[in-house]
Design a protein around this nucleic acid. Structure first.
Lengths: 211, 211, 211, 211
DNA sequence: AATGAATGAGAATTCATTCAT
DNA sequence: CATGAATGAATTCTCATTCAT
């Protein structure tokens, strides 16, 4: 993107696959797997259709690569955070959600969840992979924070499993929204996140005596 | 489905369209528009491919019919509820979400939102229609309940627009989930809804002195 | 067309087939065989598609019926004329062409030659039938008139077979024209026929000493 | 046709379009537009169905290309002749018709008029294009020759517009005939053209004193 | 490695024909 | 007799994939 392609063939070859994956991701997210043509992916990446097949043997393999490459950063970031943090549970949770949202919203990775939602029915194995590597691990992270907060007395004691889901839902929905119906209505993500923190964290906290 | 097709030429001009739409809805939701074959829709409906074209001139027109037919009940129900209710805002909101969830979860209508999320990119006009007729009106309903609660002092005073979105997100997510990644993880919807009510309503309420 | 269909089922049944044939002829001429739908023929005739099959077992059979019914009048008329005429060859030829043109131009029968030209490649047997029953007999008629005129010294002595063709060509062309490119350019058929008579008959006549 | 398809992927982007058009022309003329299958055109051209669509987006576009490519030579030739000629009107007219007939009869271009006659009803715009670019211009050419002859006293003074039509009709008919009913009857084109020249030119000439 | 012309299986769509009413 | 809903074979068109250059 930033590089200057002085001579066509002199470009870094190692970068190719991930460029292709980026193009594919963008189109898969926008249109879905079946409605995306290999031609279009190639064109968007600025290569010929044949080149696509040089790196990915089939459309389905390309799809899997898109998911696999997109999935890992989604988690690593979170796990990193959890290790290097030592504030209270509330701050951690908030920080966590904020980072996740930014990661999703600023990179094109946010399309991954939307894509998985759309294509889970057509690619059960990929969905299972996604489930194991993103959802389970992600829920795990949140679960640990919740537990921490409940143990410390910060949070009310609630059913953890369902609380994880309910807490994540609004952030997930915001991201899914971004890649689907955004062109229709404009919502204000920052305000949304503020309200989310206010509402959900508030609901989570032990009710204090508001003198 | 269960019927034995003894007679080839069975006439039911009246019932056909909605039968066909039902079959189409189910498959569109499961696989997406592009990945669903007209053959499969016909087969699921127990008719021949040609019959499908007797009622819908093209796959795209069928898609639009699916959305249009699915959209109306989604709203009518809600607006009905709002009129015939006179409890406090909290109960109304809770009742509202409960009904919506049941409507979505029990009928196949729940697939509509998931379908729209997946296909919005490919059918901008349909997405716009959906936005106008479902989202705007739906947000409106919730907005009125929130306002009622805030005016009466039941709810905290918060930014209404974003609160609407945050409040709806978990229910919407549950429904989308049902039609996408459910086969992977099993969540317990009832527990989820309970936690949702507990968490969100709690967050919404004025903090009381829990002496 | 003119009849008043007081009660639907009270209409003369005998007339049906030829009504259907008329509709079919009109559409076959306008669009060609393959591009004409049975639906359209039925609609034009004001009956249901099923009724068409009550009288004609298939589209091809209908096509043959159209040709057969259209072909006979084309000849009978001409042979009648030749028998009841006793003027000079020039007048007879002129009268002949005039009648033929009128017959073709005023009824929808004129479409038959255009239709045969278009479809001969797809229906060789029908073309052969047409050739035997229209072309051969028609050329025969003209040939006899020419011979008559040459024998009597009215016409120059020329090769009869090719003269037949050349003489008929302009009239045939006028008719074919009517059913194909007419919408584009407007020609004046009467003027055309006058010029035709003037030019061709003149060319046929023995050059006289124009003292 | 004669070539042995040793190599499947034979590249000739340059030559392809006109090869395909030739095949299409032949089949369209023989069978008509609707009765010609894309498969057959491809097979005749020795390529796959897909290749056809590589060059022509639809059957209709292919049809238009066939007409457009076929139309131009029909005129250019004639206009060229008119410029480089300086004999008398009679010779020019005769030369003109002879060349036209040869052009039509020897190349497959002769099919174009027959095709237009057959399909004018289904493609009014194409018919209009043909009218403007072939018929109008063609009549113009003949008209100029006629005027020349009448002005110089060679030809009788007649109505020019209708004379153009009458004069062209036999040649046009011969060509149409070639692509439709020829298999039925065999006529002798050379004899036909001789008789045509003899009859029509004779009819056109001022009657001379044949002492 | 890269290209893009060529392929052909597969999906949407049409329409002649059938048949229960 | 007449109807028109239903059928499915046939056709147009698409697009993932291949392969000669």
């Amino acid at each position: 993107m930033v590089e200057i392609p002085t001579k066509k063939h002199e470009r870094r070859k190692e970068a190719r696959p991930s460029e292709l994956i980026s193009s594919a991701l963008a189109l898969f997210v926008e249109r879905g797997f079946a409605a995306t043509k290999m031609d279009d992916i190639a064109e968007k990446a600025g290569v010929s259709k044949g080149t696509l097949y040089l790196y990915f043997d089939s459309k389905e393999i390309l799809f899997k690569a898109v998911i696999k490459q997109g999935v890992l950063p989604l988690l690593d970031e979170g796990e990193k955070l959890l290790h290097h943090f030592d504030g209270d549970a509330r701050s951690l949770l908030q920080e966590f959600m904020l980072r996740w949202w930014k990661l999703m919203g600023e990179t094109s990775l946010g399309g991954i969840p939307k894509l998985m939602i759309s294509e889970a029915g057509n690619f059960p194995q990929v969905a299972a992979y996604y489930y194991e590597n993103v959802i389970v691990r992600g829920r795990n992270l949140i679960g640990r924070v919740l537990k921490m907060g409940m143990d410390s007395g910060e949070f009310r004691v609630m059913d953890i499993e369902s609380t994880i889901d309910v807490i994540m839902a609004p952030v997930l929905m915001l991201i899914v929204w971004k890649y689907s119906l955004t062109p229709c209505g404009t919502n204000n993500p920052k305000q949304y996140m503020n309200t989310y923190f206010d509402l959900v964290i508030n609901g989570l906290m032990k009710k204090e005596v508001s003198k």
